[in-house]
Each structure stands twice: as C-alpha cells, then as structure tokens.
Simulated assay, not measured.
Amino acid sequence: MSLPPKIFDTTLIARHLARRPAGREDFVTDLVLADLDDRLGALIRDFPRAVIIGPDIERLPTTGRTASASFSYQRHAAFAGPDDVPDLGDGPYDLIVSILHLQAVNDVPGYLARLRSKLAPDGLLTVAALGGNTLTELREAFLAADALVLGGASARVAPMIQVRDAGALVQRAGLALPVTDVETHIVRYSSPFALMAELKALGAANPLFDRPRRPATRTLLTAAATAYAERDADPDGRVRASLDVIWLSGWAPHESQQQPLRPGSAKVSMKSVLGDKS
C-alpha cells in the first residue's frame, strides 16, 4: 500500500512550536477552546475517560463539563513525535478531542480512523481544524508578489480542508451521526507584517515540506505586504485576515443510536402526503 504524500514538514512545525515565547497569548486556541466548551456543554452525557490533543499542551484544559457532569482530560501534545497520532495508550475513550492539529496532518483519513479506533462504543470524536478560506488574503498576496518578483508562484501557504469534504471524511472513518460546520471569523491586524510576525510566533510559519528552501527576501515580503494592503485594507489602514474553524464530529457506532429506516419500510406514501399530481 502506497504511503500518503508528504505535504507538511511536521519536524519543522515541532521546531517552530518549541521556539514560541513562554506565556505568549494565543487567541486562536482560546477561541477554539471556548467554542469547544459551548459544544460539549449542550450534551447530556458522561465522559469518564476523555483525551484532548493540541499543539501547545500547556494551553489545553485539564477538565471539561457537559450539561450533566464534569470530567477530566488526558492531555497529549500534537507534533510531539514522528507519528501523526500521539501515543494515547490502550483506551478505549469516551471522548477524544483534537484541536488545531488536523490541518497539518499528512494522512487525514488515516488520522481520523486511528482516533476512531481508540473510541469506546458510543464514544464521541470532536475535531477542530483551520480550513476553508483561512488566510486566503495572505495566499493571494504572496501569489501576486511571487509573480512580480520571481516571475512564478511558490508554495507558501498550506492547502486547507474544505467544509464540503469534512462530512465525507467523518463517514470514511467509520463514525456514525456525522456533523460538520464552520465558524468564520475576520481578524484585523495593524499591517501585513504584524500578521506574518504573529504566524511566526505561533509556530505557524510556512509548514510545507515542498516549501522554498531559501528564506523570503525583503523585496518579496515588501511586495506581498503591498499587495495585501491594496486588496484587503480597511479605511483605518488595518488589514483583514479570514479565519475559518471547521468542526467535525461523529460517534463510534452503537446499537442505542438512531438508525436509518430500511428502504420500503415507510408506513405513509409520499402520494398521500402531497396529493395525487397526475
């Protein structure tokens, strides 16, 4: 069986993460964790064994709460080893949460399937990943700068998971009752350089395996910043950056879950409901 193509340099990502200043604010992680609390808080469910995976283990919560009970998380660092999925132990788990990891995984179907294998029957997998139109402004600015300065395009912004594909990924992993949605945010920065500095400080600088091996020149960065400001600046001079957080969730199959009706088992015909249109 052929291996999935290597799109992301996870060793580089881990190196970037290790260089982050201690105590630095991370509003993206905070935003995702607040949304996670809201989503789990709507469930009437106990999770005796729960796991959470994320890039910065120190920012991950140790406890969570549903509408019916509080619970404790086992915390695991993403990008901490050579494998996409950290060693979660034997399991099984009633809840597995992955935040801000899936967008830089080389084998997305395999990642979801392996997390699914650690779930107890009727256990829940919830995943939050950057996707959709995230950083589309930065991508377009670098495309324009590459064309102007270098005469061609280079890979500088990672490809993103699209919400239209997320549901199929959940089903392919063997999860029941799949749900996918997207939370869209517009973040504003004082300048394109402020956005680039934020990405670098958060360990999210160009993570592509097939990235240009020479650092971007000042001329290229200036051209990208100019293109960005021309396209996506507000009247006050600040620039906009799109942030789409895609949420995927599904349950390990269990006999207690709702099941689709067998074809032909309906007791009322559509003709009797809609009337005879012949």
Rank of each mutant, 00 (worst) to 15 (best):
R231N: 05
G250V: 14
S242M: 14
P263D: 08
V245K: 05
H254W: 05
I246M: 01
P253V: 14
Q258W: 07
D232W: 11
R262T: 10
A252T: 01
G250N: 07
E230F: 11
I246Y: 00
V245T: 11
A252V: 04
P260W: 03
D234M: 14
I246F: 02
S249V: 02
Q258Y: 02
G250Q: 06
R231Y: 06
G250K: 06
Q258F: 09
L248Y: 01
W251I: 14
L248D: 10
A252Y: 02
Y228S: 03
I246H: 02
Q259K: 11
D232V: 12
S256N: 08
E255D: 10
R262W: 00
A241L: 04
A241E: 04
L261D: 14
S242T: 12
S256R: 13
G237H: 03
R231T: 09
P253N: 12
E230T: 13
S242P: 02
A229E: 15
I246Q: 00
Q257H: 03
S249E: 09
I246L: 12
W251H: 14
P263L: 09
V239L: 07
S242W: 11
V239S: 02
R240P: 01
P263I: 07
Q258M: 11
H254E: 14
S249P: 00
L261Q: 12
V239P: 04
L243G: 01
E230A: 15
R238L: 01
E230K: 15
Y228C: 03
D234W: 04
E255L: 13
S256Y: 02
W247R: 00
P235Y: 12
P253K: 05
A252G: 03
A229V: 02
W247S: 00
I246R: 00
D244W: 04
P235I: 12
R238D: 12
Q257E: 04
S242C: 15
G250T: 08
S256E: 04
P235S: 10
P235V: 10
A241T: 08
D232T: 08
A233D: 08
L261G: 13
P263F: 11
H254G: 11
D244T: 09
R238G: 13
W251S: 07
W251F: 06
E230I: 12
Y228T: 07
P235N: 08
A252N: 01
P235R: 15
Q258S: 07
D232A: 15
G250R: 02
W247P: 00
G237A: 06
D236Y: 07
L243Q: 04
A229M: 10
V239F: 05
W247N: 00
R238T: 15
R231A: 14
D232L: 06
A241C: 07
S256L: 11
L248H: 04
V245R: 02
P253M: 13
R231Q: 14
G250W: 03
L243I: 10
L248G: 09
R240G: 06
L248Q: 07
Q257F: 03
A229K: 09
W247L: 00
V239A: 08
W251E: 03
Q258P: 00
D236T: 09
R238P: 04
D232K: 08
D236W: 13
P260C: 06
S242H: 15
V239C: 10
S256T: 10
S256Q: 03
H254C: 11
S249C: 10
P235H: 10
Q258C: 10
A241G: 03
S242G: 08
D234H: 08
L243S: 10
S256D: 09
R262E: 01
R240K: 15
P263N: 07
E230H: 09
D244V: 00
S256P: 03
V239I: 15
